[in-house]
Design a protein around this nucleic acid. Structure first.
Lengths: 237, 237
DNA sequence: CGGCCTGTTGATGCGACTCAATTCAGGTGG
DNA sequence: CCACCTGAATTGAGTCGCATCAACAGGCCG
């Protein structure tokens, strides 16, 4: 907090940007320009960051908190396209090709974000091949993610999706999957259900079935893996 | 055929590239380089263009024919992520970020393609901001498409998905949606079923229900829209 | 304490997948 | 030209997964 980088808001932003994947390897001068155009925006818990269908004015980096990108049906049911954690960007895709935001973004907790307005960012993009390349890589990863989701929804049942989710979370946090490892669940189980394309009741039943089968332990939003092998097996359907 | 552009294979390729969205607005010199690196590849009906999970060596433009990008379950059920028509590119995303092909590509008819090898293309990309920008736009559109698919699969039922598909196809081919307009179906109804995330039996039933409700007419792989309003209504779920 | 939200558990119903039988269309060869 | 075959499309009956509806238990906070 008392470092020189901490005092100047511009330098603080710049330091922050450096840690974001999207900006890795970007020239210092470009980073400076980017830090300059980034605007801080805060969103309280439960507030809407942007609405689906609204004209895209820019994209965001989530600095702190947790957010969800959702599609919702007229009846009020919602599906979570993506959960966004600190350090991740979102709504990147909407910036290109003049398409409106394809989903609604909602802050699940109090959120701090950096906002990049569309046209200044596009200018910067044209100037920095590295940035363009990183953006392409980011979008590719997103595409991969959505492709997997589609696969899951179309040809796997809830138990398989849950199994895969647990394994992925574990892999993500520990880099490995072994007996006894634990992973965190999203804020509420309703959210996890919406993410898996189901409802809380079904998720609850599936979790307790897993428990009674002895493949996992559940305790307070944390899951401990007991039997990785069968979990792997179930995730393949 | 007798034009000067038609004789030289390189010039023919170049003329072809010009018509592709990905290369619109790209400088002539860059186009030349791109045409030079493009390799013609043909795939007979039913053959595999690439397998899911294989290391991505480049991407393709479909010049002629029709292809599908599929995910398949161990039991042999398949889901079509995307149908690819002439003039469209595919597997673009796999070129960035060192990810393997996320789905399998199969030629539904005899296909002519142009193949762009990864590293030469990446070099060209760094040299042409317009190309990079177009690629970003292309990926964005894909993301939008996948997002819609996810929404459909997670919160709509088959009839709504079918309704939306018909409307979209009509919009795409005529630019408008009006009573009496017709649109084409994919090669087989099995393919359409796999694309909608269902099976041929269910699709067949749904189609005949639509027919008996008087909202469409079906004739030989062609659908005529009779009642656009209720179709619209159903597509919203 | 009494409301509110989250989570669990049970009973029921509906949509869609499965399996099986039949018809239909296209292509082949005698 | 017709008999034949193969794959696609249709139709029916049965089953299953999961959403819905409803009741209830626990934790949190005003």
């Amino acid at each position: 907090m008392n470092e020189k980088a901490g005092e100047d808001p511009l330098q603080r932003k710049k330091a922050l940007l450096k840690k974001i994947f999207l900006f890795s390897g970007v020239e210092d001068a470009d980073l400076e320009a980017l830090a300059h155009m980034a605007r801080s925006k805060a969103f309280p818990r439960q507030s809407v960051i942007f609405w689906e269908g609204k004209e895209a004015q820019g994209f965001y980096i989530l600095v702190e908190g947790q957010a969800k990108l959702v599609k919702s049906s007229p009846e009020g049911k919602e599906y979570i396209i993506r959960l966004v954690g600190p350090g991740e960007t979102f709504a990147e895709a909407a910036v290109f090709g003049d398409i409106p935001y394809p989903a609604t973004a909602i802050a699940m907790e109090d959120c701090q974000t950096l906002f990049f307005s569309k046209s200044p960012f596009l200018r910067q993009l044209a100037a920095s091949p590295t940035l363009a390349r990183n953006m392409l890589a980011t979008l590719s990863k997103l595409l991969l993610h959505l492709t997997r989701q589609l696969e899951d929804l179309s040809l796997k049942e809830v138990s398989a999706r849950l199994a895969r989710y647990i394994l992925e979370r574990c892999q993500e946090t520990h880099g490995k999957i072994e007996k006894g490892m634990t992973c965190e669940l999203p804020t509420t189980k309703m959210h996890l259900a919406a993410y898996l394309g189901t409802i809380s009741e079904t998720l609850s039943r599936t979790l307790s079935r897993f428990k009674s089968m002895g493949v996992i332990e559940v305790d307070k939003g944390k899951i401990t893996i007991i039997d990785p092998a069968t979990l792997q097996n179930m995730s393949q359907k």
